[in-house]
């Protein structure tokens, strides 16, 4: 069932598609940036500082999405002893980590002009910081432990424990009173963001996703080359 994820198959797809993805990424990013910075309207309360949202929100979404994906891959890898899944998870981590930092930093920059503070220890922001710590632990664990079996187990457990934080982040604004506002883009109920602002938001999300995919493919390639050099039994 996992045949399609065989390393050499992905390697083949990878070397061909990277340049198409790069092209697509640049196109979507350009359109997204023009929409976000010039074409989209200013907000009725926040005026132009609302434009930080087009970087902040996609970054946060992607860092959450990637961590969930890492946890899912880790669970499958842990249960079925599929080492390749762990390598895929490992290669996803850097872009998730970077987007998590971007979400926190842009949030801080956005917080000053709107809320009047750079940082607040409210549930949403603190849980996002905890996610960053889990990303850091996950990435560090891969570097610290080098015994094949051990590193896969430890990193899997970190990812699986960390993923419990993901729904906490998502629902923190509903469960507790926070300084952070509630979510504006909802799947089940009506979104509270005007369509002219939703378009650049989704475009930027697509661009950042493509960027993550690109970084993932590069990282994954490097991992595969490392494995090849060391002999196939060693991951």
């Amino acid at each position: 069932m996992f045949k399609i994820f065989e390393p050499n198959k992905i390697f083949l797809i990878n070397s061909k598609t990277s340049k198409y993805i790069l092209f697509l990424f640049i196109t979507v990013l350009t359109i997204g940036l023009v929409e976000a910075l010039f074409l989209s309207p200013e907000d009725y309360i926040q005026s132009h500082s609302v434009r930080i949202m087009y970087v902040h929100v996609p970054s946060a979404w992607i860092s959450l999405g990637i961590f969930s994906l890492i946890a899912l891959l880790s669970i499958v890898s842990f249960i079925f002893k599929n080492k390749n899944f762990s390598i895929i998870a490992k290669s996803l981590a850097p872009s998730g980590f970077v987007f998590n930092i971007i979400a926190l930093v842009t949030g801080s920059i956005w917080g000053k002009p709107t809320w009047g503070t750079w940082w607040a220890w409210d549930a949403r922001i603190t849980s996002m910081l905890i996610l960053l710590l889990f990303y850091a632990m996950y990435i560090l664990a891969w570097r610290i432990f080098d015994k094949n079996e051990k590193v896969i187990k430890i990193t899997s457990v970190i990812a699986i424990l960390g993923v419990i934080n993901v729904p906490i982040i998502k629902f923190s604004v509903d469960w507790w009173s926070t300084l952070h506002q509630d979510s504006s883009v909802n799947i089940l109920s009506e979104s509270t963001i005007h369509s002219s602002m939703l378009v650049p938001l989704l475009l930027m999300t697509a661009a950042f996703s493509l960027f993550s995919l690109l970084i993932f493919l590069m990282k994954y390639n490097t991992e595969l080359i490392k494995i090849k050099n060391k002999g196939l039994d060693r991951l």
Binding site: P41, E42, Q46, T114, L179, S184, T192, I193
Partner: peptide
């Protein structure tokens, strides 16, 4: 000692708000 503004989840252009 400190006042923070909390803004809600509504985003829209000024014309729409108007």
């Amino acid at each position: 000692e400190k006042i923070l503004a909390k803004h809600d989840e509504n985003y829209m252009p000024p014309e729409v708000a108007e």
